[in-house]
C-alpha cells in the first residue's frame, strides 16, 4: 500500500529535467542538514524549499521523454511537487510541532504534502498532535485534502466513528474510495458502516438520484465478515484492528471494531 520512499525518489528523478533534479538534490541536502540550524533566526532554508517546491518541481519541470513510461505505469504517479515535498519532509525529519506549523501556514499543496508524508514520518498518533491535521483535512471540502488525509496513517489511527464518517464523506464529495487506504481491512464486516451506506443509498434512491458505484464496493465489504470469501479475504491481514471483528455480516452484525478500535495495535505504516 505505502510506496517506499526510495521508490518514490527514483520515480521522481527519472521524470525531472536536469535543472529540477539538481534543485531537488540541493533541497534534500539542505533538509538533511536542518537539525544543525534549529536555533538560527528567520525561516529555515529547508522550509523555504518546501514552500517553493511547486515551481521548482511542477509539471513544467518534467522532461518529456521521462513521461514516456508513465502512462503505462501500473500505479499512476503522484504529482511531482507532492513527491518532492514528501522527500524534503522526510529528509528534515521535523517534530510534530513543526509539522503542525507547516500545515497551518501551508497552501493546499503544502498541506497535502504534510498529510501524504504522515505514514512515512509516523509521528505519535495523538489527538493533540498529528491526528489533528488529519481531522482538520477531513473537515474541509477540498477533495484533494480529503483524499490525502485518508492514507495509511488514517487507516491505522482514526477511530471507528471518524473513519466511517470519512468513507461517507468520500461518497458525498466524489473522492474515489480507491483513495482510502486499508479499505478492505477496515470495512470488512463493519455492520455500522453497512447501515450508514444502506441509509445513504436509500436517501439517494428516494431523491431519484444515482447511487455512487463506489458505494456498492464498500457495502459488499462491510456486509461480510473478514473471513468470508471475497476481496477482503485475500488481504494481507496485517491489521489486527480490522480482523478483530468476527460477525455474521449485514446490518445486525456486532459493532465491528467499535470498542477494540481505540486500543488496538496500530498497523505498521511501513508495510510494503
Amino acid at each position: 500500500m505505502l510506496t517506499p520512499l526510495a521508490t518514490l525518489r527514483t520515480g521522481l528523478e527519472l521524470r525531472l529535467g536536469a535543472g529540477a533534479r539538481a534543485w531537488l538534490h540541493q533541497a534534500l541536502a539542505t533538509a538533511a542538514d536542518a537539525p544543525h540550524h534549529v536555533n538560527e533566526p528567520g525561516l529555515p532554508p529547508w522550509e523555504r524549499d518546501f514552500a517553493q517546491a511547486g515551481r521548482q518541481c511542477g509539471p513544467h519541470a518534467l522532461r518529456p521523454e521521462g513521461e514516456a513510461g508513465v502512462a503505462e505505469a501500473a500505479v499512476p504517479p503522484r504529482d511531482p511537487a507532492d513527491t518532492a515535498r514528501v522527500l524534503i519532509l522526510h529528509a528534515a525529519a521535523p517534530d510534530t510541532a513543526t509539522l503542525a506549523r507547516l500545515y497551518e501556514h501551508g497552501t493546499a499543496a503544502e498541506r497535502r504534502a504534510v498529510l501524504l508524508a504522515l505514514p512515512h514520518l509516523d509521528p505519535p498518533p495523538e489527538r493533540e498532535g498529528a491526528l489533528t491535521l488529519v481531522e482538520d483535512a477531513l473537515r474541509t471540502n477540498d477533495t484533494r485534502l480529503v483524499a490525502a488525509a485518508l492514507g495509511p496513517y488514517a487507516a491505522a489511527h482514526l477511530d471507528a466513528h471518524q473513519w466511517r464518517q470519512a468513507v461517507l464523506k468520500c461518497l458525498f464529495t466524489g473522492v474515489p474510495l480507491s483513495a482510502v487506504a486499508g479499505l478492505e481491512h477496515r470495512a470488512a464486516g463493519d455492520g455500522e458502516l453497512a447501515r450508514m451506506l444502506e441509509d445513504y443509498a436509500r436517501e439517494r434512491t428516494a431523491a431519484g438520484r444515482e447511487v455512487p458505484s463506489d458505494l456498492h464496493t464498500a457495502l459488499d465489504l462491510a456486509r461480510f465478515p473478514h473471513t468470508a470469501e471475497g476481496p477482503a479475504a485475500q488481504g494481507t491481514g496485517t491489521d489486527p484492528g480490522a480482523l478483530a471483528a468476527p460477525g455474521t455480516g449485514g446490518a445486525e452484525a456486532p459493532e465491528a471494531g467499535e470498542a477494540p478500535d481505540s486500543h488496538r495495535t496500530p498497523r505498521s505504516p511501513q508495510e510494503p
Binding site: 525561516l43 514552500a51 517553493q52 515551481r55 501556514h105 497552501t107
Partner: peptide, 9 residues
C-alpha cells in the same frame, strides 16, 4: 508577509 510571499501561487 515574507513567509506568505514565498508561496507558489
Amino acid at each position: 508577509l515574507p513567509r506568505y510571499l514565498l508561496k507558489d501561487n
